[in-house]
Amino acid sequence: MLEVKDLRKSYGSTVAVDGVTFRIAKGETVGLLGPNGAGKTTTVSMIAGLLRPDSGEVLIEGRPLGGDSDPIKRRIGLVPQDIALFDELPARDNLEFFGALYRLDGAQLKRVTSEALDLVGLADKAREKVRNFSGGMKRRLNLAAALLHDPDILLLDEPTVGVDPQSRNAIFDNLETLKKRGKTLLYTTHYMEEAERLCDRLVVIDHGKVIADDTLHGLYRLLPVTNILSIELETANGGLRLEDVRAVSGVRSAEVAEGVLRVGVHDLSTGAPGILQWLADTGHLYTHVASERPDLETVFLNLTGRSLRDS
């Protein structure tokens, strides 16, 4: 459906995108993940044809973009990172304008406008000027403005940035609806939990380069530790020596605090029985066992040695 091949783009001496390659199958939702300045927006702009790459190419349905008025642009819907709406015009008029850019008019334009307003839950605000909208409402309308021409591929550049949890949930519901309708989504974000919730696959970029491209499970497998077992001991470290715990086969890490032993394992099916058996054998009784996964935050930290948020 969408193929990005070795894209490169520099602004003067700043290399914004440095050889990005990935592909998205029809109906797939791919997260484009990376810290601020990683090159996400630049990549999206090149896919949408707003920016000419220094090298590399973008193929939509196997063919490159032909020019400014290439009808293949109709297959793409862009939700820019900024709220790209006319403040002085009512919501409906904004949408009708953007629809008309795709040569929609008359009854059809009215219909798709109403549908888009319904989807994002702004039908009752249709006649209100965007200037009077809350930040969350503007974000929702910003999404609706990309849907009028019924594109197959949606390029979403941080569509939830700076909104309240309620609007964020609303936008997520909208995106899940679109996903169910079979749309192909490229979802740019630097929020891990969003990517975890929505995406089938994740492309992680940093400094303009792809540093990982895998499913969520695949990314977790890259980690030295895929699970952490929290074991509540009956007697607070009754003579337990961490060196002994770390020596147990399948255990990668171990620490103890306030009567809870935390053990990192790479493979739950062999690691978990191993440590539990060893505790029983050595006479350390426990009252509760829980397993938790590391989050994508940890994945990113592991990949780059930096935290996602503050890099």
């Binding site: 044809g49 707003l50 020019g67 008025s69 109709r74 820019p80 900024d82 953007f98 850019l101």
Partner: peptide
Amino acid sequence: KRLRAAPIS
């Protein structure tokens, strides 16, 4: 961006 993303010359 919106204007340029649309298929217009």
